[in-house]
């Protein structure tokens, strides 16, 4: 399996160039192009049609920038898991559960940094459990995580009695820990945005350049083939579940700091919104297709859609209808574009 130099020289140079181009394409995968276009169109619509052009008001943009990473970071994990062919509905429980663990540790006088890692660890553990139930029990993850979602939610509600717990009593305002998680860089860019981008970059590298990413795609597309070629598909899936759990744990704490108080209902509805964001970003529900760039834009799009509609004074309960409609339109568009791309080849 070692190329000798002679053959390498004979290799058509076009292939190497194409390889490099593909790497770039991977980052801004063609599956994300449709999403990006609609994303830009949405922004234009909202700029012109929100009253007083509120959408581009710096205050709104800042609020959006603080809000979006919550869903976005969770969606990055959920999307990657979907590429491996599984779902995780339990994020909306893992998130407040980790947040609760963080508060409890904090209240017990434990260092916040350590508490954060513990919260993420608990998230990872719950993810591991989801993974094990799914792969060892040979049941669809949709069902497995539906079960764990309801189970942990019940545990959380009973144990916390659904009382909010303010963190200010245990946690001085303006600590460096808080600055790192939810501060503002130069008083302008919220730290959440940085975290979103950092996680996107890390997962992007893992998915598109690391060999693990290769296994994720193979596992999601054709599990039997992947297994026949020596990929431990169970392990790949379980690791993806753990990544989702870890990210949910992180977001749980990040959101907690922003809200200033633990709420048992943190992250409610994230499970489907994260899937919606992934799908809008071109991730296939069947597994094997998707990209981090797409999921990134997808999460932004969902959040901007929601925000814009609120600003346009669409009744809160009506927003869900629009998002639902948007998800369907996006998927139709993405599917159509993908087919066009196929034909153009």
């Amino acid at each position: 399996m070692v190329t000798n130099k002679k053959d390498k020289e004979k290799m058509p140079s076009g292939v190497a160039v194409a390889g490099r181009a593909k790497k770039l394409l991977n980052l801004f995968s063609y599956q994300a192009v449709g999403t990006l276009l609609v994303f830009l169109a949405l922004i234009l619509v909202f700029i012109f049609f929100t009253p007083h052009h509120l959408f581009v008001d710096p205050r709104n943009i800042k609020a959006l920038a603080k809000l979006t990473p919550d869903l976005g970071i969770v969606a990055l994990g959920v999307g990657m898991l979907m590429i491996s062919g599984e779902f995780d509905l339990s994020v909306s429980t893992v998130l407040p559960f980790s947040s609760y663990i963080f508060v409890l540790l904090l209240r017990a006088g434990i260092n916040p940094v350590f508490s954060l890692f513990m919260a993420m660890g608990v998230g990872a553990l719950l993810g591991l459990l989801n993974g094990l139930i799914t792969v060892k029990g040979h049941i669809p993850s949709f069902i497995a995580t539906l079960g764990t979602m309801m189970f942990w939610r019940g545990v959380l509600y009973v144990h916390s009695r659904m009382w909010p717990i303010g963190i200010r009593a245990y946690f001085p305002a303006g600590s460096s820990f808080e600055h790192v998680l939810i501060g503002e860089i130069g008083g302008v860019v919220p730290a959440q945005v940085i975290w979103f981008v950092v996680f996107a970059l890390i997962l992007g590298v893992v998915l598109h350049f690391h060999k693990f990413g290769n296994w994720v795609y193979a596992t999601g597309d054709n599990k039997e083939a992947a297994r026949a070629m020596g990929i431990n598909t169970d392990r790949v899936k379980t690791i993806c579940f753990m990544i989702v759990g870890t990210l949910s744990g992180f977001v749980g704490v990040m959101q907690l700091l922003r809200l200033g108080s633990f709420a048992a209902t943190q992250g409610l509805g994230f499970e489907l919104k994260a899937i919606a964001a992934s799908v809008v970003g071109g991730t296939s529900l069947m597994g094997g297709i998707g990209s981090i760039a797409g999921i990134f834009w997808g999460a932004l799009t969902i959040q901007i859609l929601e925000n814009g509609l609120i600003l346009m004074r669409v009744p809160v309960f009506g927003i869900s209808a629009f998002i639902g409609l948007a998800v369907i339109l996006f998927v139709v568009l993405n599917t159509y574009m993908r087919r066009r791309m196929m034909m153009m080849r």
């Binding site: 490099r20 790497k23 350049f209 690391h210 060999k211 054709n222 992947a226």
Partner: peptide, 29 residues
């Protein structure tokens, strides 16, 4: 055949055991 449909020819040849650089990263070239 054990081919992964959506991956390309190169990725299928090296399915499950891609050539790497720096131990972890896929060496596409």
């Amino acid at each position: 055949l054990a081919l992964v449909d959506k991956l390309d020819v190169v990725e299928n040849i090296f399915l499950g055991r891609p050539l790497t650089k720096f131990r972890w990263f896929v060496n596409r070239k």
